[in-house]
């Protein structure tokens, strides 16, 4: 997801212009010399200016290279990650799982949804089933005990109610 500065900068220009325009459209509020339109306008212009500066590389010389701070005994040179075509899409897995939780939790219940989330995340990070399965079986109950029971957060029961 490393994009050239010109791309991110241009995006900021567009976003800034859009929010400035969006702010401009807001109606004034009676009795307020500075209405709700001003703040988005100022921010939008500021954002657009920042975007322009980034496109033209102003302030770039400032950028300190992110040096990887080595581990104390020298980090082993990491093997280059396998670069499949869709490999970078794996990064979208965590937000996708969170959205899955939103959609599924009320129907399946907290325990089942959470178990699926834990299992998938764990496997995607390279865990063998010997680790992923017990983790997925136990951790939802632990979390439910703390939040559902002790702190009375109304976690959905769904298909599999907890024994307590």
């Amino acid at each position: 997801m490393r994009l050239p500065d010109s791309v991110t900068g241009s995006f900021l220009v567009v976003l800034g212009a859009a929010s400035a325009y969006g702010g401009w459209l807001l109606p004034p509020v009676p009795g307020q010399p500075v209405g709700p339109n001003v703040f988005p306008l100022v921010i939008g212009i500021g954002l657009a200016l920042c975007g322009l500066a980034i496109v033209f590389g102003i302030g770039h010389t400032f950028e300190e290279e992110e040096e990887l701070i080595p581990l104390e005994d020298g980090q082993a040179a990491a093997a280059a990650p396998p670069q499949g075509k869709f490999y970078s899409l794996r990064a979208l897995l965590p937000p996708a799982l969170l959205l899955f939780y939103v959609v599924a939790a009320d129907r399946l219940g907290f325990i089942i949804t959470a178990a699926i989330m834990v299992y998938v995340t764990s496997t995607a990070l390279g865990a063998k089933w010997k680790l992923a399965l017990p983790l997925a079986a136990l951790s939802p109950f632990a979390i439910h005990l703390i939040f559902g029971k002790l702190l009375r957060v109304p976690l959905p029961a769904g298909l599999l109610p907890t024994p307590w």
């Binding site: 969170l98 959470a114 989330m117 995340t121 764990s122 865990a127 997925a136 939802p140 979390i143």
Partner: peptide, 12 residues
Amino acid sequence: SAIMPIIMLCCA
């Protein structure tokens, strides 16, 4: 692979 799933659960 054991820490990150728990973090996800806590986030949710």
